[in-house]
Design a protein around this nucleic acid. Sequence first.
DNA 1: TATGAATGAGTCTTCATTCAT
DNA 2: CATGAATGAAGACTCATTCAT
Lengths: 198, 198, 198, 198
Amino acid sequence: MGVQERRARQKENIREEILDAARALFVKEGYERVSIRKIAEKIEYAPGTIYLYFEDKAAILERICEETFSKLAQKMHAINADPSNPLDGLRRGLRTYVQFGVDNPNHYIVAFVQAKQIPRDAQPKAGERCFDNLRTAVRRCIEAGQLNCEDVEEIAQALWAGVHGVTTLLITCSFPFIEQNRLIDRVVHILIEGIRKR
Amino acid sequence: MGVQERRARQKENIREEILDAARALFVKEGYERVSIRKIAEKIEYAPGTIYLYFEDKAAILERICEETFSKLAQKMHAINADPSNPLDGLRRGLRTYVQFGVDNPNHYIVAFVQAKQIPRDAQPKAGERCFDNLRTAVRRCIEAGQLNCEDVEEIAQALWAGVHGVTTLLITCSFPFIEQNRLIDRVVHILIEGIRKR
Amino acid sequence: MGVQERRARQKENIREEILDAARALFVKEGYERVSIRKIAEKIEYAPGTIYLYFEDKAAILERICEETFSKLAQKMHAINADPSNPLDGLRRGLRTYVQFGVDNPNHYIVAFVQAKQIPRDAQPKAGERCFDNLRTAVRRCIEAGQLNCEDVEEIAQALWAGVHGVTTLLITCSFPFIEQNRLIDRVVHILIEGIRKR
Amino acid sequence: MGVQERRARQKENIREEILDAARALFVKEGYERVSIRKIAEKIEYAPGTIYLYFEDKAAILERICEETFSKLAQKMHAINADPSNPLDGLRRGLRTYVQFGVDNPNHYIVAFVQAKQIPRDAQPKAGERCFDNLRTAVRRCIEAGQLNCEDVEEIAQALWAGVHGVTTLLITCSFPFIEQNRLIDRVVHILIEGIRKR
DNA sequence: TATGAATGAGTCTTCATTCAT
DNA sequence: CATGAATGAAGACTCATTCAT
């Protein structure tokens, strides 16, 4: 038992090591430029070893995406916990989304930019869950009569577009942006003002 | 004379063929996954032939980006031509930007997403020109006292983030979006409402 | 343990196989005409396999040169061991040099002819050691008052030129030479007679 | 007639231009590294044009070798013109050979080193003529009773080896040689002293 | 469990050569 | 006479993946 458990943990550790190494490399170099060999080298294992933990290179990418969406969904979930002022909750939610992206640029780019460019069988379900949180937050605002438009889906998608835009620009674009937080706050501010009933 | 001219035109045609093929492939597969061989196959030429028209693979990417920024800058330029209602002009500008992206998804993704992920010597100047148009449009609105914030750069960058967000999502994301034009209009509407003085 | 050892030996064997094949091809075809593919074919491995043993083509050349100089230096070293008649020692040294060349034509041509034509970072140190042996042998003759010229460097370089000349001609030139040993002996004889004090 | 002549001269000019460019490139880069394209570029003609003057790349090499041997044979011929002191004539002949090499390193290396490494159908006849001059000079010395060995072929070949050695070393070897003329003189001196009857 | 040698297909790129113009 | 577009073969090298150990 003890042995089996330690082994299981050990095994889990290597999986994690691989994911960490891969994620870092994917972002620094881009998915395509990263070879299994480079990942193996980084964690100081033999190339073949990777295949004991993942079916192939795509499976690593897949796993990283799931992980990312899952983490993001978790963060976003907190928003809807607080029932006080829905619009404020929504604002915090949008802020949280962008913050998650800039705090975890590797995760974000891999899942939301690189993965989109690679034909895969299925989008991870966690991705849906993220968006569901946003839907819920929007719905509450509408129910509280705080928005100038009553189409949950339309607003939710528009907001997503807005925050996704800042996030990707800030991460990938070498452009003389103004101070990061100021820009994020401004975008979120505009979005909220743009949907608020007055 | 006639011969030289015909040859030059012929040559230009092939250049275009290559660019068209490359652009399409870049978007479908991603820059890295596209090989010179694949481009050559698509246009039914030998791989070496490509090198008679472009120095290397990067040069093709470069050319596509320039082309894209140039086209976009041209479209955007029209906005500032009409001096009547600055805010309306801005709105049309934002709409034009997104429309350009969804009308030329290949161009857009290559230039604004893929190219950003590849270290290159220089960002094309046309890219700057695009953004300058946006700056100017924003400045006019501010000068006309139509905005609730007077920082040209801050607003311009925030707006860019917004439109870039929808554009990329619509192009790259296989998601059950609402009808495209409705989404675009909503985003632009939100952005304008979000910056308008009231 | 036993496994690791066997593997290491196995690996060393393949390295040698590669070097042997490369050396032979380099001489028959010339360094530039030899491709990694051809080497791989000769030893019946896949081209990529070569790269598990050598960083690149130049590294193979480098290794062959070092090996050659090292072997030659070792042979030449024996000369100066016998302190009896210095001039006789020198004669034997020159003979040894040429013999080494015609016995290992591949090694010799690669290291002394082909490698010289390829810009490399550094000349192997073993090359210097070879020439040092010659210098020493000449110095002893001078100290024993046996030569008609007292400039060690001048004589050593002149002798080197002489033996290098026969060696390369015999190896590379398809010319109706007289019996090889007779020619070598004659050259060495001339050189010794040409520097001997009388 | 006038036209035909001018054309012929023109044609000869381009042939020469090609040969000059090729020779220079062959030496700087080595025969294999030189492409027809590079030659064409250097003389500012189209690649295809080369093929109007030479059958293929090897033919250019061939022609350069012949040219070289011819020039050398001419120089060497002068030696045997002067019937006074045969041994002095021989000495001057050897000196002339080496001087030709260091004065025309490009010609020399291409013909005597690079060409030897490329399998060709036939050695140019001019090469034989060069060596014939040497044979003749040696024969005269023997007939004048000035040598310590009576085998013309043996001595001639040995001398050739000697002068070829210095020439190639001086041209190809990056080695801290003593002053060039001193070394050449020493080698020739040794060779003459080594064959002179005393 | 982990290794690491080996492969075959693929990467970008260059080349000698041909041929319609 | 001269061009230069085009090709097919080959160059060095990298990679995801497999498999015997």
